[in-house]
Amino acid sequence: MQISFQHVSYIYNEGTPYEYQALNDVNLDIQEGKITAIIGQTGSGKSTLVQHLNALLLPKTGEIHILDRVIKASENPKQLKALRGDVGLVFQFPEYQLFEETVLKDVAFGPKNFNVSEKDAIKRAKEALQMVGIKEDSYEKSPLELSGGQKRRVAIAGILAMDPKVLVLDEPTAGLDPVGTKEMMQLFKKLNSDYNKTILIVTHDMEQVFKYCDNVVVMQDGSVKVHTSVDEFFRDAESCEELNILPPAVIRMKKMLNENGFHIEGEIKDITALAKAIAKEVKHG
């Protein structure tokens, strides 16, 4: 099964002077069970695209196939609540959605909406909070007392507690510190490998794409410009630069070395692999 967009277009504020076509005939097949990165400049339509996945936005034309369901312009939103449970969407800046008296209650709010019993919801909430690294002594605090990064974690936990099959994250690490960012990305990787969740991440960070993702989708002006595997995408630095994307440091390093007489071929995934390749070349002279 795949998640597929077929000729999807979306227009904001249709019929007003503020009309804006944010998506333009998007065709896209996303593999299930993989981590897909969605990248592109600000305003290229990434957030608009991902909001179609759980039918928060309904396409003006075309349709979306996801988990045996079809979302199209005429779809009656009534049947879509189950879809919202299966496709968890974490918004850009999700910390603004916290409202309950305590952190624990807020995280349990999602599952409770999907008819999970109070007790199970609390249990799931605790698990989710642990996953995102919120300590137990914060469970009874008001979400408003937390720092920005902690709020972000709680908000993400709020979606994780719903145990969705597909997890969609809109810039989940923007504004987190480097350690927090790494922990988050490792968590998503783990959810993907251990629980076989399909994950879509909107991000501006090429290092993240390179290190954690399987596939990459490049959006430009409301259309899909490139859709390929991450390995393919970063194979040579030139194609990235054509798209105005700065490749990850390792790839840039590899390019610079090759421009200066080295012949490093094949997949270089991280700094260790690069170091080994250099050592090999140096040895062989």
């Binding site: 609540k81 969407l89 409202f99 709010f109 999602g110």
Partner: peptide, 29 residues
Amino acid sequence: MKAQESRGVDLKEGKLKEKIMAILSLIVP
């Protein structure tokens, strides 16, 4: 609204108690 809808809030349907909760989840933030 969108963020809470993603968490399963149904602003149109539901019992009175759910409706109150839905409105709270909107007004507080």
